[in-house]
Write a protein that binds this DNA or RNA. Structure first.
Length: 650
DNA sequence: TGTGATGTTGCCCGT
DNA sequence: TACGGGCAACATCAC
């Protein structure tokens, strides 16, 4: 005699009904009842950096999937239970007499830990747990296994490992019907999670009430929460989530066969807006409203039929499918490295560069604490001005403001601002930048975000640090008129094209005509009754030289996050040659610069002051070898590394 | 312990 | 206007 299965389907980052291997596994059980639930996770509410725009996108996806469930069974909908899964599920499994718990596998470091605890608790209660990989093209753990347990560090590696794992699973149809949910009456005690520290507190305008009205929410109906319930400010993004939205948009993308089959990412513009140059599928992929395998196969079908017809097609890595391969590469890298993927300290795949504003480390756990050292107050100011879109470089500021406002920026725009914050400008830790993106991006995916910051800062995946994005030239290439800047930096909307990328060079008369004064550090909106836009935080060309010297030196020294000298803090001895970074004086702790309270070491300088380049020993030697170099610098405005080294060989 | 090609997307100049 | 060379230089991989 077998008991009819009573199943909980636990939704997580798979907010869709189509092509869901885990949901299919649940339905294959032929359950007598199926409870579609969401366990409200306090980690996401309080401890992960989640801005209001991503909250709204998540709630959109939840509402949409709930409505889709109801369309298949009018008695059913998404049941949102206000308690974290780890404490909630053991009680729930008992209360609802559950036989099977089914969910999609999560290879994020946090997700894995949470799921291990849930699985252990469920199995102790005799509940069968079924998980399926569904977030990536291939199961990331399988990819790692096929790659000898190592993280995949290039697309070729991913493709080779993927081929060993097997074919990318074909898509699964949306179910035609869903079982009834069982009785939702609940008589269990709610355990309220610890809300401290609440890193998202600054996003709130009211009281955070995620857990205060009980497990079933303020109306006792397990409804999807509102931003209000979370005490959050209204969202500012125009982008809305949901499986329905993206499936419709996907058809529009695929209907344009030329676009789909010849897509090349580097040829899409970071400066285009309304509409953007790409179709913005990333946040839907993140929340699982769109299946990456479904997307992949639909594109592949079009591409292969065109290939047969001998029509032009693009290929990975720049093609649409190539973009999905990169996503899998980062997921498999994270699956192999776990928590340390997200930090420099103790990370054997992350180069150690003595960045400014390094993360504080808890040497007991080996993990970063979420705080950072302010090794130099001027660098903290630069960081805040970068974050707030007030660097005085309009291209950078426009991108950062679009990010904050809309929660999405083009991939190349991410490159530009990431390079600028780290190796090609401020020389500030990539971990600071990754945190800002984590908070503001609606498509924030830990694996991809960390991977891309690693890439751009040249600590991992990529090493051609001499390829440096100019905050002036790169934007101009895409948008010579400066329309993108005018849109997101309205202070400069009337600035002539000639000065739009470098308004501090505009004559006072032109500034006056444009109704803006280029002055100050971005703290004042108006100066003398005129709209103000800040002066640049530094002279870019000078700063780029400092960065290049620093990178060259750090590469030469060749430390990684797990090098003994990084772990014990003695790394600083190796950086006595004046390379950029917080390496001077006697400071230097594990992974960073503990002991920064030594006030004498803080060289506070005026915001408008231009820093003098510190040449490394190596660099000096090369310069003296060819004195002609000094008189052969290019125009400061457009300079690249070429200028400084031109003819150095001959 | 070589050599040359390749690597998702630099910039500038010359043709 | 699109493309290739030069710039100085990184890691990895096939040979």
């Amino acid at each position: 005699m077998s008991i009819k299965p009573r199943v909980i389907y636990w939704f997580r980052t798979d907010l869709r009904l189509h092509d869901s291997p885990a949901l299919q596994a649940a339905l294959d059980l032929k359950p007598s009842v199926l409870y579609p639930i969401w366990a409200w996770d306090s980690h996401y509410v309080y401890h992960a950096r989640v801005g209001v725009n991503r909250w709204q996108f998540l709630l959109d996806c939840m509402n949409d999937v709930s409505q889709s469930i109801t369309k298949l069974n009018e008695k059913s909908r998404l049941l949102v239970l206000r308690e974290p899964a780890v404490t909630l599920l053991p009680k729930l499994l008992k209360a609802w007499k559950i036989t099977h718990l089914v969910f999609e596998k999560d290879t994020d470091a946090y997700g894995r830990q949470r799921d291990e605890r849930v699985i252990a608790a469920a199995e102790k209660l005799g509940v069968e747990v079924i998980t399926r990989s569904g977030r990536t093209l291939w199961d990331s753990d399988d990819v790692v296994k096929a790659h000898d347990g190592k993280p995949t560090m290039s697309i070729t590696q991913l493709q080779k490992a993927g081929a060993k794992v097997g074919l990318i699973a074909p898509p699964i149809d949306t179910p035609k019907s869903l079982p009834d949910p069982g009785d939702t009456a609940l008589d269990i005690e709610q355990e309220q999670p610890d809300s401290k520290p609440d890193v998202n507190d600054k996003e709130r305008q009211g009281e955070e009430k995620s857990y205060s009205s009980g497990i079933s929410g303020p109306n006792g109906d397990f409804a999807v929460p509102t931003l209000q319930e979370l005490g959050l400010k209204p969202a500012t993004t125009p982008h809305r989530g949901g499986e329905t939205v993206i499936l419709e948009r996907l058809e529009r993308i695929l209907a344009d066969e030329d676009y789909t089959a010849t897509f090349e990412k580097p040829k899409t513009s970071p400066a285009q807006f309304e509409p953007q140059s790409t179709f913005l599928t990333s946040p839907y992929l993140h929340f699982g409203a769109l299946s990456c395998r479904y997307f992949y196969h639909r594109v592949e079908t079009i591409v292969s039929s065109r290939r047969k017809a001998k029509k032009a097609v693009s290929e990975p890595p720049t093609s649409l499918t190539g973009q999905l391969l990169f996503r899998d590469m980062y997921f498999a890298a994270q699956a192999a490295l776990g928590w340390k993927f997200g930090q420099t300290y103790n990370n054997d795949h992350c180069r150690f560069i003595p960045w400014h504003l390094p993360s504080k480390v808890d040497t007991k756990t080996g993990l970063v604490t979420g705080e950072y050292e302010i090794d130099d107050q001027a660098k903290e100011t630069e960081f805040q001005r970068w974050r707030n879109g007030k660097t005085g470089f309009p291209w950078i500021d426009a991108i950062m403001r679009q990010l904050r406002q809309e929660g999405w920026i083009h991939h190349l725009a991410r490159h530009s601002v990431a390079c600028f914050l780290t190796r090609g400008g401020c020389y500030i830790s990539w971990e600071r930048g990754a945190e800002v993106f984590e908070e503001w991006l609606i498509d924030h995916e830990a694996a991809c975000n960390i991977g891309n910051w690693n890439w751009l800062s040249c600590v991992s995946f990529y090493s051609q640090f001499y390829r440096c994005y100019s905050p002036v030239a790169f934007g101009k290439k895409w948008d010579p008129e400066g329309d993108y800047i005018r849109r997101y930096v309205p202070e400069l909307k009337d600035m002539p094209k000639k000065w739009i990328y470098e308004p501090h060079k505009a004559p006072i008369a032109d500034q006056k005509k444009a109704g803006v004064v280029i002055k100050g550090g971005g703290t004042e909106e108006e100066i003398g009754g005129v709209t103000a836009y800040p002066k640049p935080i530094f002279d870019f060309n000078t700063q780029r030289d400092i960065c290049l010297d620093g990178m060259k030196n750090a590469y030469r020294i060749g430390l990684y996050g797990n090098s003994p000298k990084v772990l014990d803090g003695t790394w600083k001895e190796l950086f006595a040659d004046g390379a950029a970074g917080p390496t001077e004086g006697q400071r230097g702790g594990p992974g960073g610069t503990t002991g920064a309270e030594d006030a004498d070491m803080h060289q506070h300088h005026d915001e408008d002051e231009v820093t003098t380049p510190k040449k490394s020993v190596e660099r000096e030697k090369r310069s003296t070898k060819s004195p002609a170099v000094k008189n052969h610098k290019r125009e400061r405005s457009q300079g690249t590394l070429d200028g400084a080294f031109k003819k150095a060989k001959g």
